[in-house]
Amino acid sequence: MNQHFHALRVTDVIVETEDARSLVFDVPDDLAEEFRYRPGQFLTVHIPGAEHGSVTRCYSLSSSPHTADSLTVTVKRTPAGHGSDRLLGSVRVGSVVHVQPPTGRFTPASLDGDFLFLAAGSGITPVMSIIKSALAAGSGRLALIYANRDERSVIFGEQLAGLAAAHPDRLTVRHWLESRQGLPDAAGLRALAAPFRDRDAYVCGPGPFVAGVVDALAALGVPRERTHLEQFRPPNRTAFPDPPPGGDPSARTPRSVNGLQLVLP
Rank of each mutant, 00 (worst) to 15 (best):
I124S: 00
R38A: 07
L43Q: 01
R224E: 14
S139G: 14
A7T: 09
L71E: 03
V173Y: 07
I47L: 07
A147S: 10
S64Q: 06
L31H: 02
S133D: 03
A137D: 08
L118A: 01
G157P: 03
C58S: 14
H167Q: 13
S110C: 12
A20N: 12
S122L: 06
P126Y: 05
P208G: 09
V10K: 01
Y202W: 15
R199D: 02
D69Q: 07
M128A: 12
L116W: 02
I130Y: 02
G94H: 05
L23Y: 02
T238N: 12
G212E: 00
G221F: 11
T227E: 05
L160C: 08
A50D: 15
N236I: 13
H46W: 05
G162M: 04
A187Y: 10
P254F: 03
E178I: 05
L262I: 04
G247D: 02
D114V: 10
R36S: 13
E178A: 13
L31F: 04
V213I: 14
S122F: 05
D85Q: 15
S63F: 00
P234T: 15
H4Y: 13
F196Y: 05
E16W: 00
A134G: 03
I145S: 00
P195V: 11
R152W: 06
P126W: 04
S256W: 13
S110Y: 04
G140Q: 09
R141K: 15
Q41R: 02
Y202P: 01
V10L: 06
Q181H: 14
T11S: 10
V214T: 12
Y146D: 01
P168N: 12
E225Y: 10
A218H: 11
D169E: 15
G123M: 07
P244V: 14
S70Y: 13
S22W: 02
D26F: 14
R197E: 08
A119D: 01
F232T: 08
P108S: 09
R255N: 15
V127N: 04
V75Y: 00
V263M: 11
D69H: 07
G89N: 10
V99S: 00
R190T: 10
P126D: 06
M1G: 06
M128L: 15
G104R: 04
R141I: 10
P184I: 09
L220H: 07
N236H: 14
R9H: 14
P126R: 07
Y202C: 02
L135M: 10
P244T: 14
S60I: 09
I145Q: 02
A134Y: 00
T238I: 13
V73E: 01
Q41E: 01
P48A: 12
L87G: 04
E230T: 07
G221W: 10
L71T: 08
L192P: 05
S90W: 11
T172Y: 03
T253G: 08
V263P: 11
T44D: 00
D85Y: 05
G207H: 13
A80K: 15
L192Q: 12
V210P: 00
S153H: 10
G40H: 04
H82A: 13
R77T: 15
R233K: 14
A166I: 09
V97H: 00
K76I: 09
